[in-house]
């Protein structure tokens, strides 16, 4: 490889990452404020109103149980939204071709966009945690402590990267807005709701437990739950291993989509 300019190794990546972050900050109401309101409502309805009537096996208050689930749900939804809508709006306005014409590699594109997704998803997760903590503080008199900060961080990054990459894969492949929203509505939404955000799968019928175990989201949600609460439905190493495999698989899928998908304007 003959690259005269050493700056090309990092600068295009940094520029794209900055662009991704700046983009969602420009539409902050849609990207950060609206998730804040929806997690507030979830906590109010499920946590406060229904939560008092729910008794979990593990004796953890339902509100505390719910918080990591909502954090992961906010994280993956926003990570997916960030990369996919960035690519799709760029396809619409035509500036995706600018990226193709610039001396930037596919790996740089993937990492910059996926990390941009982690940042937005991570911010939403942190906001959800803070709002949830305030609720917990009101009902139990103390803030929700994080049991294992490193494990928490690890699963936040994994979840953000995986769904950022899925967003890229779908958006490059998609030829219409419909295909994109079909993925959100028919795949992403059911998987999150059935992945143990609101329920402990131990409360389910054994058959449905088996079905839930096939849901890859279960492992991300329970990994994060272990990080925050110190216990979860699924073994930690199990969660970790499956999430890592997910990361590798979706990285390859996103790479394939980038190579074969279209940069062209709609």
């Amino acid at each position: 490889m003959k690259i005269e300019n050493k700056e090309l190794t990092w600068l295009p990546f940094v520029a794209l990452l900055r662009r991704e972050i700046k983009r969602f900050l420009k539409v902050i109401v849609q990207t950060l404020v609206s998730p804040l309101i929806s997690s507030f409502l979830y906590l109010l309805v499920f946590g406060v109103s229904l939560g008092s009537k729910i008794q979990l096996e593990s004796n953890i208050p339902y509100m505390s149980f719910l918080i990591p689930g909502l954090m992961m749900m906010g994280l993956i939804n926003n990570a997916f939204q960030n990369s996919s809508s960035s690519v799709v709006t760029s396809k619409f306005s035509g500036d995706l071709e600018d990226i193709r014409v610039a001396p930037i590699t596919n790996h740089q594109i993937l990492w910059a966009m996926a990390i941009g997704s982690v940042v937005r998803g991570g911010l939403v997760a942190i906001i959800t945690y803070i709002v949830g903590s305030i609720f917990v503080c009101f009902s139990q008199g103390q803030f929700l402590a994080i049991a294992h900060p490193l494990i928490t961080l690890c699963f936040l990054v994994l979840g953000g990267l995986i769904f950022g990459l899925i967003g890229i894969a779908i958006a490059f492949w998609a030829r219409t807005f419909d295909q994109l929203s079909a993925f959100s509505a028919f795949i992403l939404l059911p998987l999150t709701y059935l992945g143990g955000v609101f329920i402990s799968i131990r409360e389910l019928h054994p058959f449905w437990q088996k079905v839930s175990e096939m849901n890859p989201l279960l492992y991300l949600i329970n990994g994060l739950r272990y990080g925050i609460l110190g216990l979860s439905d699924v073994d930690l190493t199990h969660s970790f291993a499956i999430s890592l495999v997910g990361l590798v698989v979706f990285y390859l899928v996103a790479q394939w989509s980038l190579r074969n998908g279209s940069f062209q304007r709609w």
């Binding site: 300019n5 700056e7 090309l8 600068l11 295009p12 940094v14 520029a15 794209l16 900055r18 662009r19 600018d98 990226i99 610039a102 001396p103 930037i104």
Partner: peptide, 10 residues
């Protein structure tokens, strides 16, 4: 500014 970055100019 982004365009400069994409082309590796600081």
């Amino acid at each position: 500014d982004f365009q400069s970055g994409f082309h590796g100019v600081k």
